[in-house]
């Protein structure tokens, strides 16, 4: 090919057939050499098996359980996913969605028409009655904090937000109840979803309550 092929210092080239022939039986006689094993095959075996051992261990430790959500090799898919959300946060969103129209963003209501929620005995003193009002609504006049509401012309009844009304589920009703008990300066304990479910089951389907009906409950 090139000029230096005629150079006598050039090593002898193998033909293509020779290349195949000299390699064809390589290794077949090297396994056992006079009873003593050759060192290199053992070294290679050790190299390959230690690499595989290392790789296996590494995958076991750092593959994040092969989970799609693990992005840190020290993370673990078995960690408990905590999706607990403060009911007051959801309650506030729910309140702003529906309740502010009448009761106002600060829970102060409108004199004579819509009762306030701040310092209202209906909100803080009793959970049984509050949940009933939320579930089924409240019609007719009502006395809150010593003042009369709902008797004047133009007054609107409190609509149901449970079954037959806005249709909220129990956890949303519990959340908004908890919110109004803990906002606007109120400091009553929270209301659980279980409690709402319990009362919903007890009451069944019915229309709005009146103030007298609720007062009659113990």
């Amino acid at each position: 090919m090139s000029a230096n092929h005629s150079d006598p210092s050039e090593p002898r080239r193998l033909t293509d057939q020779e290349i195949i022939q000299v390699h064809d039986h390589a290794g077949e006689e090297t396994v056992d050499d006079g009873g003593s094993y050759k060192l290199l095959p053992l070294v290679m075996l050790a190299a390959l098996s230690s690499l595989i051992f290392f790789g296996g261990t590494y995958i076991g430790l750092y593959a994040g359980h092969f989970a799609p959500t693990v992005h840190d090799e020290r993370g673990t898919a078995s960690a408990v996913v905590i999706t607990k959300v403060d009911p007051a946060v959801i309650g506030k969103k729910k309140y702003e969605l529906l309740c502010t129209t009448c009761h106002g963003p600060a829970g102060m209501g409108t004199p004579g028409l819509f009762p306030p929620l701040a310092k209202s005995e209906w909100v803080v003193a009793t959970d049984e009655k509050l949940i009933r009002i939320l579930l089924n609504g409240l019609a007719g006049p009502v006395t809150v904090d010593g003042k009369e509401f709902g008797a004047a012309a133009g007054a609107v009844a409190m609509p149901a937000i449970g079954p037959g009304g806005a249709g909220w589920n129990d956890s949303d009703i519990a959340a908004v109840a908890t919110y109004i008990r803990q906002a606007f300066g109120n400091t009553a304990p929270e209301i659980s979803t279980e409690k709402v479910t319990e009362i919903r089951t007890k009451v069944g389907t019915r229309g709005a309550w009146s103030s007298a009906e609720l007062q009659a409950l113990k």
Binding site: G64, A67, T69, V70, H71, D72, R74, G75, T76, A77, A79, V80, V81, I82, T83
Partner: peptide, 15 residues
């Protein structure tokens, strides 16, 4: 911060 990812990739700061 999606819930599962936030939980699965929380690594103690000491590590």
């Amino acid at each position: 911060a999606y819930g599962p990812e936030a939980a699965h990739n929380a690594v103690k700061p000491a590590e």
